[in-house]
């Protein structure tokens, strides 16, 4: 397993009030994303544990893109990755910020 951590400065804080959300599953080509709203609104920390070693540069590119496009400020995002492709990672991150915006069920 390879562990990576990125501290980002997103331009937009996450919306909604939900404390946390989880999407996805740890399976081949898939990943789980746990989002917790417990950081200052101008920071987003993303911790990754991945089964695929040597892709730090790809992760960084996907995460740069994510914090530029999505409201991610204030979120601590933890990822368990089962070897997902970058498009799947982007999709799960987008799903995650969408879910944490929703009202508590």
């Amino acid at each position: 397993m390879e562990k990576l951590s990125f501290t980002m400065k997103p331009s937009t804080p996450a919306t909604g009030t939900r404390a946390r959300a989880i999407v996805g599953v740890v399976a081949s080509g898939n990943l789980e994303v746990l989002l917790e709203r417990n950081l200052p609104a101008n920071i987003c920390i993303i911790d990754i544990a991945t089964a695929a070693r040597g892709f730090a540069a790809v992760w960084e590119a996907v995460i740069e893109d994510f914090v530029t496009r999505r409201p991610a400020g204030g979120l601590h995002i933890s990822i368990n990755d089962g070897g997902a492709r970058p498009d799947m990672v982007s999709l799960r991150l987008a799903q995650g910020v969408r879910l944490i915006e929703e009202l508590e069920a």
């Binding site: 397993m1 740890v26 544990a49 991945t50 089964a51 368990n80 990755d81």
Partner: peptide
């Protein structure tokens, strides 16, 4: 799972 270097789920 970490002993086997396998991915965990929360």
């Amino acid at each position: 799972l970490a002993i086997f270097d396998l991915p965990e789920q929360f």
